[in-house]
Write a protein that binds this DNA or RNA. Structure first.
Lengths: 126, 126
DNA sequence: GTACGTTATATTTTTGTAAGAATAACTAAT
DNA sequence: ATTAGTTATTCTTACAAAAATATAACGTAC
C-alpha cells in the first residue's frame, strides 16, 4: 500500500435536490417525511432523527409553498395530542424521489469507475 | 395558471462530491482550480470567485491530503510575487470531474422527467 | 537592502444556520 | 375545568463555518 493518506478509498456521493427559485426539497425533507409516515407525528419524527421541531416545521412549510401542494394532513388535540400523516402527493413524491435517487446512484457508480479508476492506480501521480 | 406559488418551474440540481473519510473534492474546489489554471494565481482566482484565500488554501490542502497527490505546483517570490499552476493530475481530475458531472446531469434530466412530470400536471394534487 | 506581490499559516472576527425556548391553540378524556 | 400531548409560530441563543486579519517567507528587480 502506497503513501496515500488512509486506507479509506475515495468514493462519490450524489445529492439530489429540487429548486424553484429557492431550494425546496432534498434528502433532509425526505428522511423527515419518511419518519413522519412511520410515527404519524412530526415531533416523534424529529426526536428520531435529531432535528429540531422548528427546523422540521420550517422546511416542510417551505417545501409545500414551493411545490404548490400540501405534504402533511395534521390535526391538533385529542387523546394523543394530535398527529400528522402524509398526503397522497407527499407519498408519491417521496417514493419517486427515492427511486430516482437509486437510479442516479447506480449510474453514478458506473461513471465513477469509468472516470476515476486511474486514481487508485497511482501511476503517473505527481 | 393554477394556484402554485410562482412561475418558476421546479427543477433538479445534482451535486457530485468525493469523500474518503471526509469530504475532499466537489464543485467548490473544481471551480477554484479552474480559475487558478486561468490566472496562474491562487489569490487572483479567489478574488475572481469571491472566496477567501484562507478557505481556498484550506480546501486545497484537504483535497491533496485525502487524494494522496498534489494539485498545485506553486512558487513564492520573483518578479510577479510567485504563482501557482495545476499539476497534471489536477488537470486530469478536473477534466474528468466536469465530464462526469455532465453525463450525470444529462441522465438526471431524463430521470427527472420520468419521475416528476406529474407535479406540473396538477391533477390529483391535494 | 528595500520594495513588491505572491504563497503559507495561524489566529481572530463575523455571519448564517440550526437548536432551543417560549407561548398559544387544539381536542379528547377524566 | 384541568390535564395531556400534540401542532403551530415566533423569538432568542448557540455553534460551526467562512471571512477577515495578521504575519512570515520567498525571490526578482531596482
Amino acid at each position: 500500500m502506497p503513501d496515500s493518506k488512509s486506507n479509506v478509498k475515495l468514493h462519490p456521493k450524489l445529492t439530489l435536490q429540487f429548486f424553484t427559485s429557492e431550494k425546496c426539497f432534498g434528502p433532509g425533507v425526505a428522511i423527515l417525511l419518511e419518519k413522519i409516515k412511520e410515527y404519524n407525528s412530526i415531533s416523534k419524527a424529529c426526536a428520531q432523527i435529531g432535528m429540531s421541531y422548528s427546523k422540521a416545521w420550517t422546511i416542510i412549510k417551505r417545501a409545500e409553498a414551493n411545490l404548490g401542494f400540501k405534504l402533511l394532513e395534521s390535526k391538533t388535540g385529542g387523546v394523543d395530542g394530535g398527529g400528522a400523516t402524509l398526503t397522497k402527493s407527499a407519498q408519491r413524491l417521496l417514493s419517486e424521489f427515492r427511486m430516482c435517487e437509486k437510479e442516479l446512484n447506480d449510474f453514478c457508480d458506473v461513471k465513477f469507475s469509468e472516470h476515476f479508476s486511474w486514481i487508485d492506480d497511482n501511476a503517473n501521480i505527481e
